[in-house]
Nucleic acid binder design. Structure first.
Length: 408
DNA sequence: CCTCCACCGGAAAGCCGGGTCA
DNA sequence: TGACCCGGCTTTCCGGTGGAGG
């Protein structure tokens, strides 16, 4: 019976000789200690501590590449701050908004409103109305609200800095005694400041913090500390932590990547009933993660972007390993025509190429070839077989790929 | 040193399917 | 119900631009 099969699976997982507490390795887990970020914790803490005295802390701007602990440090400090405030009877709240996921002014404002208990509908209101409701909510409350805008560069790139501007001066719209608002902006784009209006820049950057990437040794410390809680003793074979750290250090010291690697490696080991995690598991984990990422990226791609990507694959099958915007556009037009879909303009494809590049599935770099114009040189950066597989999830594109596989 | 190619990328605006509000 | 608003995707228009070749 299938019940027996499941029982067996359940037993195996429960009796896991690998994980003691897998969640410790999840990206959302905020540990009680953040190794090699003591300095950052102190800096951020000393700025935000103003809130404990009931006054508005300076706005803070935090830079640093992905996986350098920006979000973890911020949430860590805020949770401690809120707890402290509660214990001394001061009202301090925070709103955490990741503007990559919540990438419109409307959603951001709705989230901030929700953090002080003001509910707004998903859609339908004007942004101005949401803002007005937020302001009314703040007027009715006291204390300090700290608004964290994570990956704020996404919002500004797509929507401009209007919202940021409004938020930096929300205080001027509030009467004395209303809840005060501080902003913490987090970005991994170093050139981001250039995109900001001078007024926003100076206001948001009252305080600035830079998070340096971890080096391999520091990553090892982080991994070791987490591994101790996450795994049973002696489960990790020698060299596993070092290997994870080295791989992640190669991509600019990304701790999240390192932790993912370790977690997935553990999962692989567990699933096959192994009693220890080996370097081999880590290697396979790397491939699994990359594969999942490509699938996820392609799954959420609009149709035209998928056709552009498919065209790039087709060119590759013909032996063309790198193309230009113009060539790719021609190939794309033919493909679209052939499957009965109106092609979009080259201007649009140009944006799609940029999007695919940012998502890390292709590589597009602008070059000037003098007499022969300025264009992008485009190559597929993800594994071609994985891309084909992921594109084939769509029946229409799958048919095209099967029909053309292997020939020019 | 200048030209001029093959694009780049900003700005504005339109369309569409989804939603709210009174 | 109709007026209004949203985000996502797209078009139209157009002012740049790095550098090989003249």
């Amino acid at each position: 019976m299938s019940g027996d099969v499941l029982d067996e699976v359940f037993e195996r997982v429960m009796a896991s000789r690998v994980f003691r507490d897998r969640d410790v390795l999840s990206p959302d887990y905020i540990p009680d200690r953040l190794p090699h970020r003591e300095e950052e914790i102190r800096s951020l803490g000393s700025v935000l501590a103003q809130a404990l005295k009931g006054s508005r802390p300076s706005n803070v701007f935090i830079y640093g590449l992905t996986g350098t602990g920006k979000t973890a440090v911020t949430l860590y400090v805020l949770r401690r701050l809120v707890a402290k405030a509660r214990s001394i009877g001061v009202n301090v709240l925070y709103a955490y908004v990741n503007t990559r996921q919540r990438d419109t002014a409307y959603k951001v404002l709705a989230d901030i409103a929700a953090s002080i208990g003001v509910r707004v509908p998903f859609t339908g209101l004007s942004t101005a109305e949401v803002y007005a409701r937020l302001v009314r909510g703040l007027v009715r409350r006291r204390g300090v609200l700290i608004v964290v805008l994570d990956e704020v560069d996404w919002l500004v790139k797509r929507r401009g800095d209007d919202l940021l501007y409004k938020l930096t001066r929300i205080g001027y719209e509030l009467p004395r005694g209303a809840m005060q608002v501080s902003l913490v902006g987090i970005t991994n784009d170093v050139k981001f400041v250039d995109m900001l209006d001078a007024r926003v820049r100076s206001s948001l950057g009252e305080e600035e913090l830079v998070f340096r990437p971890y080096n391999a040794e520091q990553l090892e410390d982080i991994l070791r500390e987490r591994a101790e809680k996450a795994f049973h003793p002696g489960v990790l074979e020698p060299g596993v932590i070092e290997y994870c750290a080295a791989l992640a250090a190669r991509v600019h010291g990304d701790a999240r990547r390192a932790l993912d690697l370790l977690r997935v490696a553990g999962e692989l080991a567990e699933r096959e009933g192994a009693s220890s995690v080996s370097v081999e598991h880590v290697k396979r984990a790397w491939d699994v993660i990359e594969r999942d990422r490509v699938f996820e990226v392609i799954r959420s791609l609009p149709l035209q972007a998928r056709i552009v990507l498919l065209s790039l694959v087709l060119l590759r099958w013909r032996g063309v390993k790198s193309t230009t915007t113009g060539e790719l556009y021609n190939a794309y037009s033919l493909v679209a025509e052939r499957i009965g879909i109106d092609p979009v303009t080259q201007r649009r494809v140009s944006d799609i190429i940029n999007e695919l590049d940012m998502l890390g599935v292709i590589n597009a770099r602008i070059v000037s070839r003098g007499r022969y114009g300025k264009t992008r040189i485009i190559t597929l950066s993800a594994d071609p077989d994985t891309v084909v597989e992921a594109l084939s999830v769509d029946p229409l594109l799958g048919r095209v790929l099967r029909r053309l596989r292997g020939r020019g």
